[in-house]
């Protein structure tokens, strides 16, 4: 039986040192994936490095150009930041669809991202929002788009000893908003069969100047559907443009048949949810 070491560093530096020193160690945020996977035997780290004692990782900072969400901020806390809720209601909703209240009081968006599940709920919303991750390691920091963190189910682009210290979401543009929806057979406590997020910016005339549509659970990693953006930008998000975007989303999907849904159903739902999130984001952005 391998021994398991538990470390609870107070600083980012200590955390990176511990991660670098212990090959086969894992960061622990809420633990709502990690501990479950350790219990089931799916992962067996030699050491875990708890990020929750590091004060700077437990904050949400409102900077001029972005929101910085520390890696240890539980999803529930996102709802308490008024500016974040006003600017990115879809991101906050997505993170607060995860599990149940109890789960969200622990779970973090960084953990959701780094767990690299194709069905992670907050990730499509973060991708649509154009969020980035600050990746911290022994040799310093780098900033990468969130969609570049997961590379395959359960795999990330993080090097040994690196972890995500914060997620940055740009401040919302004037006339912009977002939305996230998922398809599940129940009403909660479920894993997305499909998830879809839209981030939309409208100009004063109601014309779409920017659109980012991202879908989850329909490919090995979350997809940002460029063709959907193309279908929407320059339009007034009329039925024809939205229908084109729906078709682009369905076409971009590369899902699998599994116990949670068939290929055909997932493709169809990706389109339906894309349509719905576009409509919600448009309403929120002040369009009609």
């Amino acid at each position: 039986m391998p021994d398991l070491a538990y470390h609870a560093p107070d600083t980012i530096k200590q955390a990176t040192d511990l991660l670098a020193a212990n090959k086969g160690s894992r960061p622990l945020a809420g633990g709502t994936d990690l501990i479950v996977q350790m219990q089931s035997g799916r992962v067996a780290p030699v050491a875990i490095v708890d990020l929750k004692r590091i004060a700077s990782l437990k904050e949400i900072r409102e900077e001029a150009g972005y929101f910085a969400i520390g890696a240890a901020v539980p999803c529930t806390s996102l709802k308490n930041n008024k500016a974040l809720v006003a600017e990115w209601p879809g991101v906050v909703e997505a993170a607060n669809l995860i599990g149940s209240v109890q789960v969200r009081n622990r779970a973090t968006m960084s953990g959701n991202l780094c767990n690299a599940s194709p069905a992670a709920d907050s990730v499509p919303a973060l991708v649509a929002a154009g969020a980035t991750a600050i990746v911290t390691g022994a040799s310093g920091e780098r900033e990468v788009p969130v969609e570049q963190i997961p590379t395959a189910p359960g795999k990330t682009s993080l090097a040994d000893g690196e972890f995500v210290s914060e997620i940055r979401i740009p401040r919302q543009q004037k006339g912009g908003s977002d939305a996230y929806l998922r398809s599940i057979p129940r009403t909660e406590m479920d894993i997305a069969v499909v998830g879809a997020a839209a981030s939309i910016v409208l100009d004063a005339s109601g014309t779409c100047t920017s659109a980012r549509i991202a879908v989850g659970a329909v490919a090995p990693t979350v997809l940002l559907v460029e063709d959907a953006s193309k279908a929407l930008v320059g339009s007034k998000l009329d039925d024809a443009a939205v229908a084109k975007a729906m078709a682009a989303v369905s076409a971009a999907c590369n899902p699998i048949d599994d116990k949670r849904g068939t290929v055909a159903y997932r493709k169809a739902m990706a389109g339906v949810l894309a349509k719905r999130v576009i409509q919600i984001a448009r309403e929120r952005a002040g369009g009609n």
């Binding site: 057979p185 129940r186 009403t187 909660e188 406590m189 479920d190 894993i191 116990k259 949670r260």
Partner: peptide
């Protein structure tokens, strides 16, 4: 058995 847990063996939850 591919769904040996309450995640994928879906009994109703209260909100359903």
């Amino acid at each position: 058995l591919d769904n040996a847990g309450f995640l994928d063996y879906r009994i109703p939850v209260a909100s359903d």
